[in-house]
Write a protein that binds this DNA or RNA. Structure first.
Lengths: 192, 192, 192, 192
DNA sequence: AGTTAACCGAGACGGTACGTCGCGTCTTGTT
DNA sequence: AACAAGACGCGACGTACCGTCTCGGTTAACT
């Protein structure tokens, strides 16, 4: 009577199968039955541990992200923002982007998925806020800025273009955006 | 030797049924069968004219929007932006918001839906760009600003908070956002 | 104020299309829409003149049969029966057989089709009865035989094997059957 | 690692529902959806185990027949044939007749149904042939008769009248038929 | 000679059933 | 007890035809 405990092997196979399926066929084509078949696992095992396919992919994303590091910190907040946002835009074009896109879509009509998305984002946002706080303390950005909102101003354009696809995104999009936002972020010159 | 013509009555009943069902139950709960039943129409009639439920709702949104007017223009671009963005955020909390949210979600894995979303947005964005261009010509905003990007900077935070739900949105959110963006939009004081 | 007259051209095209479709694809694959398309005719025209696809095929069969002659009469009833039954069995293997088979099937659950089948058969049966009556008068067959029943005894085996397919039918099936039936048909030798 | 096993309860409910529906409404009115609804079963369960409604009814008939006994044997082959054929004609007027009629119709354009019909008939025919063989050995019928063909001669008239409905069948039809066939079946008086 | 009404083709319409897919639950052994 | 396998009831899918219903257009008989 060995397996009275959860099989880590099955868990990993399921998460990987879900990730791969989504990457290959898109979020809409991912099904519990497909994951079970690909992972060589019974459907019961999936339903025992996850409430929906979104939950599996959320776990996949969180797994992947745990390997990733925190916010870059070269001392120059503008360079760091440019580096991080460009990195995000690049990431959105990979398999991860396909999955992330699907999760955001699922979150629009699935409260649990929405919670997962929020939880995932919270970590990134907190990291960004922390980096901005440090920059503010270093006098690189205005000290009367709501940093949570600052994150939304910075990443809003990315999600706007990525999710709404209103136009082809230019090469160095975020460089341009950040340059435009600069006067809104830097301490106002008239103050002392 | 002309064939029987398309039934305008059925078209309208279908679009309305789709709208109502989506408003009542959410996008995910909308089914072609449900629409057909509610509209008193055969499924064939729906499939004859629309490729998916998203297409029907896109038509519903376009119909509704055709009634709406253009961008507000009081002469004060900041007042107008504040008014329009607040109006959008209010709209997002209505039935229209439910539908729009669903369409954006569908657009993430349905190319046709994405086209529809893009087409709908294009009109609003063009109106905003036109209003910004007028403000620029009036010297109210910087003349070196990519206006298309300006729209993304202004509306990005709205979609970011609305779609990603990372935090409860404050009361006068857009007032704060616009205030923060002001230095990025106004002509730089150091120039003359 | 007489109406425009029925189009003989359309009538013929419909009957032929129905025949050909049935011959090519089998009775079950024949549809009103298919006939209309193949005949280059509106569905209305079909529904105006025929109540069902069976009715069209009944007309096709009757048309075809009108060309055919009556019962063979060489003076030898046994030779004539052998010739005619063999000819029927050969006919059943042609396109006509496919259609006739379908009509008999349809007749099992469609009263109108059953009437058509009965009407078509009536002519053949009457011809056979007439031939048998002549043979009886010539002293070739028993005079106490119910001739209607005699037809059923003679053709029953054909339909039994053809419709129920219980075994492969031997080459000279009807020769054997008629030989076996001979004692039942000929005047009994003990009588005077 | 065995899978879940087939539900005998569902199997029985489906076969019974199909039988009842066919008896009540006729073969043509039987639908898979109707059977599923009446049996309280998913359509998938039906399609998993049967290829068509005909297949279900074939099973129903085989089930019913498994309960039935073999050919009557009083020692008098003519009495036995009269009893059995009359019994068949009576049976054809019951619900069983409705279903059997439908299956024969289906067999005309469905190879699988044809196989089922053949399989069902084979048992009855074999029983009849066996009884005839016994009678032949007892000297009650000619010993040069192809017994398979004899069955077709005896039952042919029944199916001819039942399927083709060319005339109202007289009360004691098979008595008359068998009386007429007698000379064809009995050992020829001229032999010794 | 013009009117007109029944015919024609085309095909849209409200329906019903099709056969399939995936859902989430369940049952059955196996490990 | 957790596992793989997969059958189950269910709901929706998108398709095929049903039989009815407009649509113009065409044509023959009757003003």
């Amino acid at each position: 009577m060995s397996p009275a405990i959860r099989s880590e092997e099955a868990r990993q196979a399921i998460v990987e199968a879900a990730f791969d399926l989504c990457a290959e066929q898109g979020f809409a084509a991912v099904t519990i039955e497909g994951i079970a078949a690909r992972a060589g696992v019974g459907k019961t095992t999936i339903y025992r541990w996850w409430p929906s396919k979104a939950a599996i992919l959320i776990e996949a994303v969180e797994n992947a992200r745990d390997a990733a590091a925190g916010y870059p910190d070269t001392g120059d907040i503008y360079a760091d923002l440019a580096a991080q946002t460009s990195s995000v835009m690049r990431l959105f074009k990979t398999d991860f982007g396909t999955i992330w896109r699907g999760l955001i879509a699922a979150a629009q009509s699935d409260e649990a998925a929405a919670d997962g998305v929020t939880r995932i984002l919270r970590v990134s946002i907190d990291a960004c806020v922390a980096r901005l706080a440090k920059a503010r303390d270093a006098g690189q950005i205005r000290d009367d800025l709501d940093l949570e909102m600052a994150v939304e101003i910075i990443y809003g354009p990315i999600y706007h273009t990525w999710l709404l696809r209103t136009r082809p995104v230019p090469e160095a999009y975020m460089e341009t955006v950040l340059a435009a936002l600069l006067p809104a972020l830097t301490p106002s010159p008239g103050r002392h």
